[in-house]
Design a protein around this nucleic acid. Structure first.
Lengths: 235, 235
DNA sequence: GACTAGTTACTAAATGTTCATTAAGTCAAG
DNA sequence: CTTGACTTAATGAACATTTAGTAACTAGTC
């Protein structure tokens, strides 16, 4: 894991600058991990290069030597994590999601990284905006496929057919599952005792899949009639 | 600087000695609304008092005259919105949630405010952290009650009884619904075409409630045994 | 194995912002 | 004369980024 810094640190003050010994290991990766931790703990906007540099016992300029700018560093962090956790195709992915939630509960850092960054990315001109948009597009597709895969062939067609809302039930289910996972992360970060991410994730998946089995036709049905839903899909 | 220098409107340089006319309306509210918009569009950390002040054609110090600090302004914004949207008690709340999602789709500003701020609040030392923690605690309870209310009396007891995960199915359902709504907001903000917030919210509510009717016993049952969660966490 | 040149990984020291906040004053209205 | 709603100006801090080094290692050449 983190078998770093064999001898030297320059955390010692006062002394004439003592140079860290050259390591063969990719310093880049070390910085990336550190930056990920920092962004996770404080968000992107609220993390300074000085924060990250301090954790590494170097100067901000030292960080920028490896990554041209703070924004570059962010995108590198995101890409690193991306290729880290391959999802199995097919309906196995749904189980994988539960496992992921379980694992997330043991890795507050990574969890926070995505929870915080994804929402932050929805602000104007955020450097990670495009990255997250793309990510969700891909994930929705994958989860949709997984949902369809889990459904029996008899429901598959109906679940894959766009309803009045413009999206297929399977796609809505995919959005729902991903949304729930993200939202749970925020609740859990704020109050870890209050929610069991894995259990609730499983509940949502099971519930939504079951719903598609019984009522695969549902796109957006107004049920109890208590509200006046202006079923307008907006122009 | 002659004594009579009657300086300025804000937006325009120089000329007409035109102080903003004294209005009776609460300037506080005006500032609050503006600040809400700004926080929504850019997040809290990324919004400066100068940004807000500029939108009002005053100086940053002018804003601080009404609110002692930026943090005070944030909490005031949150409290304003809080007392804005009363939820009906009982199972009617579930319909209210769908209606809220519908309304949110027409108010990107408010939606963004909460989506961005709630996630941002999960970072270390954020001023709104306690506020959101409290908010979720209250909302979970309210939605839990609403879910129990919607269930028939025969399922109510089982759904209200804590399972192996430590939380009752109804509470898990509540967390799920709220989480889904939050997560949907992020997806929607990033890509409005991609998700129908109201439709998916309704799907989740219906699915989860139905699930509790058929299997109110489920807390977190290993059940199908389809996944092996052990071992290997490394990719 | 020493000499040199290139590369890597930094540092120190600006630079120019942007920011929240404070202090003290102005001006109009009640 | 007091109060409310501001303003100008200053302060000090935090920041990302640039520039110009410098130390250590690497490789090639004699």
């Amino acid at each position: 894991m983190s078998e770093t810094t064999p001898t030297e640190t320059r955390s010692n003050e006062g002394r004439p600058p003592e140079r860290a010994p050259r390591k063969r290991v990719n310093r880049r990766e070390q910085i990336l991990r550190t930056a990920a931790d920092a962004f996770a703990a404080q968000g992107f906007n609220n993390t300074s290069l000085a924060d990250i540099a301090a954790m590494l016992d170097i100067t901000p300029a030292g960080v920028l030597h490896h990554f041209g700018s703070k924004t570059d560093l962010l995108t590198a962090v995101l890409e690193l994590r991306d290729n880290n956790d391959p999802a199995p195709p097919g309906s196995g992915m749904l189980d994988h999601l539960v496992t992921t939630a379980e694992r997330n509960a043991e890795r507050p850092g990574t969890t926070q990284l995505y929870a915080v960054l994804s929402a932050e990315s929805a602000t104007a001109g955020h450097p990670a905006q495009e990255w997250f948009r793309e990510r969700y597009t891909v994930l929705r597709q994958e989860v949709e496929d997984a949902v369809l895969d889990r459904l029996g062939p008899e429901h598959r067609e109906a679940a894959g057919t766009p309803g009045p809302s413009g999206h297929s039930p399977a796609r809505s289910a995919a959005a729902a599952v991903l949304a729930a996972m993200d939202g749970l992360q925020v609740q859990w970060l704020l109050d870890p005792e209050a929610v069991d991410m894995a259990a609730v994730t499983e509940l949502v998946i099971d519930a939504v899949v079951a719903r598609l089995s019984t009522r695969a036709d549902t796109g957006k049905s107004s049920g109890e009639g208590s509200q006046e839903a202006s079923g307008n899909t907006e122009g």
